[in-house]
Lab assay of single mutants.
Amino acid sequence: MAAGGDHGSPDSYRSPLASRYASPEMCFVFSDRYKFRTWRQLWLWLAEAEQTLGLPITDEQIQEMKSNLENIDFKMAAEEEKRLRHDVMAHVHTFGHCCPKAAGIIHLGATSCYVGDNTDLIILRNALDLLLPKLARVISRLADFAKERASLPTLGFTHFQPAQLTTVGKRCCLWIQDLCMDLQNLKRVRDDLRFRGVKGTTGTQASFLQLFEGDDHKVEQLDKMVTEKAGFKRAFIITGQTYTRKVDIEVLSVLASLGASVHKICTDIRLLANLKEMEEPFEKQQIGSSAMPYKRNPMRSERCCSLARHLMTLVMDPLQTASVQWFERTLDDSANRRICLAEAFLTADTILNTLQNISEGLVVYPKVIERRIRQELPFMATENIIMAMVKAGGSRQDCHEKIRVLSQQAASVVKQEGGDNDLIERIQVDAYFSPIHSQLDHLLDPSSFTGRASQQVQRFLEEEVYPLLKPYESVMKVKAELCL
């Protein structure tokens, strides 16, 4: 049975990233139509530049190519590739079939990587351009969430054990800070992308030097003109047959890092959902379990974690691919890159769409948070109580021993009897502590235990987050809708 299948058929496997999760716009960027249309555009740009620099290419040939950029006979191309065992030459023939007058000058002087690699770089750039505003929107939604809850005390956790208090907004800023680093890295790697350009079979530009009869300047002009037509500021000066596969490492490393950030955020949300302090959106008709109707599973956060793990592992592909590119190139890269580049971007696209949807509907339960604080705060307040007693004339050592005994009794009630923490009640009825009984409410005010959390939130948002989001103001209103 021949390899390949009808990918629109229910009898043929289709990647869930495309069929179930990723956005239509990201799927289109990695589609065959987008790819092969870009090949034709690159052939047109090459012909236009070659004509401008004096090669015998007519206006009629150029116009014929322009008129057929979208006229792609995919069936013919597939048949040609089956016959020739070469995808680029299959599309040269297919393009030439609908451009008979231009057929002889299509791909003039070029090698397969002229269309293959340059198209990949265009796709990487455009895919990054799709991700950047999506990530900015996630940051914006979380920034709104953090600002609104900047002063809401909550129990902090280290080692997932109760620690000092923080605020809900401050905790959210930990998430935002990681995503801001990801946004900066995505922008950097996007701006650092260079075009492969017009380089020939081993990167020496020998074929173009021959076409222009040894004119170095025209060869350099050709490279520059096509690079500018493709919208790049610069091209690699040095290439082998391909652009260095280190570029793929750079791009997928940034995406993998984004995956790590999203995994951490969504894990926190899942843990908070278990504590009943916070939940992701839950639709009115949504079913959490087929057997347990009360369940409210954090399905979206779980999906993000599941896909983020996949995204983090994909960076190993370009690392290994770059390491086995012998001399000017081997074909070890080809099949692998067809999979890992598309999957990385479709996965990143999915987790950003999902995280935006989550961040637009996060639900906080202040009463649950308050109750958990009441359970733990008495123990945390013991040092403040000791200091207040010393100020009232008591002995630190005597007070410490009193607190120690009462704390152990209260802990026994919590752990052995399943009761509430009654340390404060014990202190309130103990005559030894009568000098500070009137101060206990103040000493137990949760806001006095959150330090500068709310001020940190305000400063972080104003100095770091809002300036970073400013270039994306025009796209901030787009909502994230999930079908599944």
Rank of each mutant, 00 (worst) to 15 (best):
57 I>F: 12
259 G>C: 15
67 S>C: 07
24 P>W: 08
369 I>K: 00
63 Q>E: 09
106 I>C: 01
159 H>M: 01
274 N>V: 06
224 K>R: 01
420 D>G: 13
219 V>P: 00
258 L>K: 08
466 Y>R: 09
81 E>V: 02
165 L>G: 11
20 R>G: 07
362 L>E: 07
279 E>N: 00
450 T>H: 09
252 L>W: 13
138 V>E: 06
410 A>M: 13
466 Y>E: 00
443 L>N: 11
66 K>A: 03
126 N>K: 10
188 R>Q: 09
337 R>F: 07
447 S>R: 08
397 Q>C: 14
429 V>I: 13
124 L>C: 03
309 R>F: 11
74 F>I: 06
116 G>P: 05
13 Y>S: 13
94 T>D: 01
66 K>M: 15
475 V>W: 15
8 G>C: 13
117 D>P: 05
374 R>D: 15
194 R>C: 00
273 A>V: 10
195 F>E: 09
463 E>K: 15
223 D>L: 14
197 G>F: 03
246 K>D: 15
127 A>N: 00
365 Y>E: 04
450 T>N: 10
73 D>N: 05
16 P>R: 15
181 M>E: 05
116 G>C: 07
472 Y>N: 06
429 V>C: 15
428 Q>Y: 07
394 G>V: 03
334 S>E: 01
32 D>K: 13
457 V>E: 00
337 R>A: 05
464 E>M: 08
249 I>C: 15
331 L>S: 01
289 S>L: 00
405 V>T: 02
226 V>A: 03
2 A>T: 11
394 G>N: 09
255 L>Y: 07
216 D>L: 03
147 K>T: 04
110 A>L: 04
112 S>E: 12
409 Q>V: 11
419 G>A: 05
380 M>W: 07
240 G>A: 02
226 V>C: 11
420 D>L: 00
454 S>M: 14
25 E>S: 15
142 L>Y: 04
301 S>V: 08
123 I>Y: 00
300 R>D: 01
243 Y>T: 14
201 T>G: 09
23 S>I: 14
464 E>I: 13
133 P>R: 12
240 G>I: 14
218 K>Q: 06
323 S>C: 15
87 D>R: 03
203 G>S: 03
25 E>Y: 13
83 R>Y: 08
39 W>C: 14
378 P>Y: 14
425 E>Y: 09
265 I>S: 09
408 Q>I: 02
186 L>D: 11
389 M>G: 00
275 L>S: 10
399 C>V: 06
296 R>I: 00
449 F>V: 08
180 C>M: 04
433 F>H: 15
409 Q>L: 11
264 K>G: 11
143 A>T: 05
249 I>Y: 13
45 W>K: 05
33 R>W: 09
186 L>F: 07
246 K>R: 12
318 P>Q: 04
248 D>Y: 15
377 L>G: 11
51 Q>E: 05
107 H>L: 03
58 T>M: 06
352 L>T: 09
150 A>L: 11
260 A>V: 02
372 R>L: 14
254 V>L: 15
134 K>M: 00
337 R>P: 07
11 D>S: 07
452 R>W: 04
459 R>W: 04
476 M>W: 02
297 N>S: 02
164 Q>K: 00
449 F>G: 05
481 E>Y: 15
329 R>L: 04
121 L>W: 06
194 R>N: 09
414 V>S: 11
457 V>R: 15
106 I>T: 06
94 T>G: 07
278 M>I: 13
254 V>T: 11
211 L>K: 02
161 Q>K: 00
243 Y>V: 14
61 Q>K: 04
112 S>A: 08
402 K>M: 02
13 Y>E: 03
249 I>D: 15
223 D>N: 00
435 P>W: 07
72 I>L: 04
262 V>T: 07
10 P>F: 12
294 Y>L: 10
136 A>G: 10
35 K>Q: 09
303 R>K: 11
31 S>E: 11
136 A>T: 14
246 K>T: 06
206 A>D: 02
57 I>L: 13
207 S>W: 14
197 G>C: 02
436 I>E: 09
259 G>M: 04
404 R>P: 03
466 Y>I: 14
315 V>K: 09
325 Q>F: 06
305 C>F: 02
272 L>P: 12
435 P>E: 05
133 P>N: 10
104 G>R: 08
478 V>F: 08
180 C>S: 11
39 W>R: 00
158 T>N: 10
16 P>K: 00
386 I>Y: 04
238 I>N: 04
26 M>E: 11
481 E>H: 04
329 R>M: 01
266 C>N: 02
172 C>L: 00
173 C>K: 02
210 Q>S: 05
112 S>V: 07
97 H>Q: 05
422 D>V: 02
60 E>Q: 06
128 L>A: 05
306 S>W: 08
219 V>K: 06
42 L>E: 02
29 V>E: 15
370 E>S: 08
168 V>C: 02
180 C>R: 03
314 L>T: 06
239 T>V: 12
140 S>V: 12
392 A>F: 13
51 Q>P: 03
82 K>P: 14
315 V>E: 07
371 R>S: 01
278 M>C: 13
63 Q>D: 15
308 A>Q: 07
444 L>D: 14
99 C>E: 15
16 P>S: 13
449 F>Q: 13
324 V>D: 11
16 P>L: 12
109 G>F: 13
64 E>K: 07
231 G>T: 04
155 L>R: 03
253 S>G: 13
291 A>V: 06
111 T>N: 15
483 C>Q: 15
5 G>K: 11
343 E>L: 03
122 I>F: 14
320 Q>E: 08
108 L>T: 11
72 I>W: 13
276 K>E: 13
53 L>G: 08
104 G>W: 07
405 V>D: 07
471 P>M: 02
325 Q>S: 07
283 E>G: 07
353 N>F: 11
330 T>Y: 03
72 I>N: 09
284 K>H: 03
178 D>N: 01
281 P>E: 15
295 K>F: 15
43 W>L: 09
301 S>T: 02
56 P>M: 12
6 D>M: 12
339 I>W: 11
26 M>V: 08
202 T>P: 04
443 L>S: 00
429 V>F: 15
64 E>Y: 09
8 G>W: 11
444 L>V: 05
166 T>Q: 05
312 M>G: 07
148 E>H: 07
332 D>N: 02
384 N>D: 13
413 V>M: 10
230 A>P: 07
55 L>A: 06
385 I>S: 08
2 A>Q: 09
107 H>F: 00
33 R>G: 05
220 E>H: 00
225 M>L: 04
37 R>L: 13
170 K>G: 01
206 A>T: 14
207 S>F: 14
71 N>M: 06
421 N>V: 11
340 C>G: 08
52 T>Y: 12
77 A>T: 07
102 A>G: 05
220 E>L: 10
186 L>T: 13
317 D>T: 03
290 S>D: 07
32 D>F: 04
360 E>L: 07
315 V>C: 11
306 S>F: 07
